[in-house]
Simulated scan of single mutants.
Amino acid sequence: MTKKIFFIFLFLFLTYEQINANALNEKTKNLEENKRIQQQLNKKLEDLASDILNGEKTLKDLSLQIQILNSQTAKLEESAKVQYKELNMLTSQNSNLLKSKANMEGKLIALLAKDFAYDLPIPEGYVEGKESFLAFEVLSGLDKVLNSEIFKLSKDYEGITKLIDDKQTQIKKINDNLKDYNDQITRLQDLRKKQLDEINKQKMDRAIYSKKLQNLQAQQDELRKTLDQLRIIQRKQQEQQEQKSSKIANNNQKIRQLGSSYQGSAIKRYTGKKTIAPLDSFTVKQKFGNYIDPIYNIKIFNESVVLKSKKSDAMVKNVLDGKVVFAKDTSMLARVVIVEHDDGIHTIYAHLDKIAPNIKVGKNIKKGVIVGRIKSDLTFEVTQKNFHINPLELISLN
């Protein structure tokens, strides 16, 4: 009774451990996937597009490999069926041969024992007579018969041993062939799993990419609306209508624009003196100008740049002396500060995590004054007299 309780307890414990292990593996898998999604969300638009295109190439390669393996496996499958049948037959034959061999070994042992008995030495003091002579003649004849039987049985034993070896060689060869077939099946299953994982990654990456494009359009729309209200950049009614009607194109459409920004934005080169950058250390995450999206065939004109700070909670500095004309929260661009400068220049600082408490509309501020802080990315835009300027032409990148 105690043993029974112990085994029940052991079974329940092992089952519990297995459930925990499966749950842990699932959690680890989910954490890894969430980490990958976060990495994709933080990537540049063009890098994410590159990942999607590479993923499509990987899927094509996987499909081709699966197609080849499917064809090879189909051919091997017919051969495997025949070989499985042959293997069963050979195994059965080998079993019978091994039984015959064991039987022969028993017979050989018995014959050798008899032969040994007939060859026993003559006892001491033995007197040879007529009867003993006849007995020796009989024994000699029996010995010859036994030797003949032993020889024949030995030959049969040798033959059956060779047959067994031959069958074993055939069985090994078939097993090797079947192992190749089973390995092929395993490779095919692995490829199909890899293909499914890649399809799921592609779906997720495309969803992230589409969302990024939509957010980019919405953010540009909101900023244009703000600039229009402040009479910094004024646009025609026709352009505004185009902006509302444009949508993300499908894969099979020709290249088209996203919003009215593409070719609708008036741009000019900045030829003045360079000034300080709004961040101390950064990389350019999104460049100014044309971007042709390779996934949905959309033309985008980036009117701003996105600067990625090399440290978190970074301070954002005003780049030229000027007056604050806008400083508040927005729905798409988080917190935004716009500063008006001489010669019709305006600088826009968007996606601020915080606006500095001393930054108020109407206040004059000097170059280098902190306008706010960011967690990671700063959207920085520059205009001059109804024209957009590449912000990287205005600031020093040293």
Results as ranks from 00 to 15, higher is better:
Met1His: 09
Lys4Gly: 08
Lys4Ala: 09
Ile5Pro: 05
Ile8Ala: 06
Leu10Cys: 08
Leu10Ile: 13
Phe11Tyr: 15
Phe13Val: 12
Tyr16Gln: 14
Leu24His: 12
Glu26Arg: 08
Glu33Asn: 10
Asp47Asn: 12
Thr58His: 07
Thr58Pro: 03
Leu69Thr: 01
Ser71Asp: 05
Gln72Asn: 13
Gln72Lys: 08
Ser79Met: 06
Lys85Ile: 00
Asn94Met: 01
Lys101Ser: 12
Leu108Glu: 10
Leu108Gln: 12
Lys114Trp: 01
Asp115Phe: 11
Tyr118Phe: 14
Leu120Ile: 10
Pro123Gly: 04
Tyr126Cys: 04
Val127Tyr: 02
Glu128Ala: 05
Glu128Thr: 11
Phe133Ile: 05
Val138Arg: 07
Phe151Val: 07
Phe151Gln: 04
Thr161Phe: 00
Asp165Gly: 11
Asn175Glu: 15
Ile185Asp: 03
Thr186Phe: 01
Arg187Ser: 00
Arg187Val: 00
Leu188His: 04
Leu191Met: 06
Ser210Val: 12
Lys211Ala: 07
Gln217Arg: 06
Gln220Gly: 11
Asp221Val: 00
Leu223Asp: 02
Glu239Gln: 15
Ser246Ala: 15
Ile248Gly: 13
Asn250Ile: 04
Ile255Lys: 11
Ile255Gly: 05
Arg256Cys: 07
Gln257Tyr: 10
Ser260Tyr: 08
Lys285Ile: 01
Gly289Asp: 12
Lys299Met: 07
Val306Lys: 07
Ser312Cys: 06
Asp313Tyr: 04
Ala314Lys: 11
Val325Pro: 11
Val339Gly: 05
Leu352Gln: 05
Asn358Arg: 06
Ile370Pro: 10
Arg373Gln: 12
Ser376Pro: 10
Val382Gly: 13
Phe387Thr: 02
His388Met: 10
Ile389Glu: 00
Asn390Met: 11
